[in-house]
Design a protein around this nucleic acid. Structure first.
Length: 263
DNA sequence: ATGTCAGGTCATACCTGA
């Protein structure tokens, strides 16, 4: 089973890129972030024609998350992260697909820091950590996939000095992310590519893509029940170079099938 | 400090968020 996460940065304006990538990469499950589309403006028909069922949580102008499933409909298990009933931003949606619980998240950017946006980011990360503990206690196979807006280490950024005051790289953000990981999650891409430079985002400024001035902020975290099934992981970085591409590239894992029980 | 996008609007020129 191939599971991908992709911050599309506007699903309607990037639709040709998304459809081309789905056709070429054929993931079984896709977590999308930054739809930037109201609920009724989600391109359901185009995705259905491409062979994908979908659930989504839209929002006008900003945010928005979706889960796609090839050849069927995802079974929705949750929408919205618990812990703050006043949070109106569409940043979390979850589904059960072929025995795996798929959490799709778009963590707040948090800039400028310090400030209310940074506080919101740290609060969101704390809520995610609390919820993550709940998920782990169930013992279920879980993937938490999405745009975390956190650069975990110096090795995940082309030039750490440039990002030292950024909300994606500040010590508070990294410490909170590492507390989440320390619960027992496996950072799938880093686990299989421990000594490789891997980036998932290249911003539109400063010719970043051509210079490979990237950062790694899109992550797939696996619960212990799933870590043993991790077969491969990677980034479809060429997609970032396509015409009218998002500033992120699709990031994916492949899980081995569950072994059939003997009778 | 700069720079590039997309969405949105008291719209064809700015603002915001990223």
């Amino acid at each position: 089973m191939k599971i991908a996460t992709y911050n599309v940065n506007g699903i309607n304006s990037r639709l040709p890129v998304l459809l081309r990538w789905l056709d070429e990469s054929r993931p079984d499950v896709v977590c999308l972030q930054e739809l930037k589309a109201a609920q009724e403006r989600f391109p359901r028909a185009a995705l259905e024609a491409a062979g994908y069922g979908a659930i989504w949580s839209g929002q006008k102008s900003w945010n928005g998350v979706a889960i796609l499933r090839r050849g069927g409909e995802p079974i929705e298990t949750r929408r919205g992260l618990p812990g703050d009933p006043d949070d109106q931003q569409s940043r979390y949606i979850e589904a059960a697909i072929e025995g795996v619980l798929i959490g799709c998240l778009y963590l707040p950017n948090g800039n400028p820091a310090p400030g209310p946006k940074f506080d919101y980011k740290l609060g969101w990360l704390e809520r995610l950590t609390k919820y993550g503990r709940r998920l782990l206690r169930t013992g279920a196979p879980v993937v938490l996939a999405g745009d975390y807006n956190v650069i975990p280490t110096d090795f995940d950024v082309y030039k750490p000095e440039r990002w030292k005051d950024d909300a994606l790289f500040l010590p508070d953000s990294r410490a909170a992310f590492h507390r989440l990981i320390a619960q027992g999650w496996t950072d799938a891409v880093r686990h299989l590519h421990a000594n490789e430079r891997v980036y998932t985002f290249w911003d539109y400024f400063r010719n970043s893509w051509a210079r490979n001035a990237g950062i790694r902020i899109d992550h797939l975290l696996l619960s212990p029940a799933l870590a043993g099934r991790l077969k491969s992981a990677g980034v479809d970085r060429e997609v970032r170079g396509w015409h009218k591409s998002s500033d992120h590239a699709p990031t994916w894992i492949v899980l081995t099938k569950t072994r059939r029980k003997r009778r």
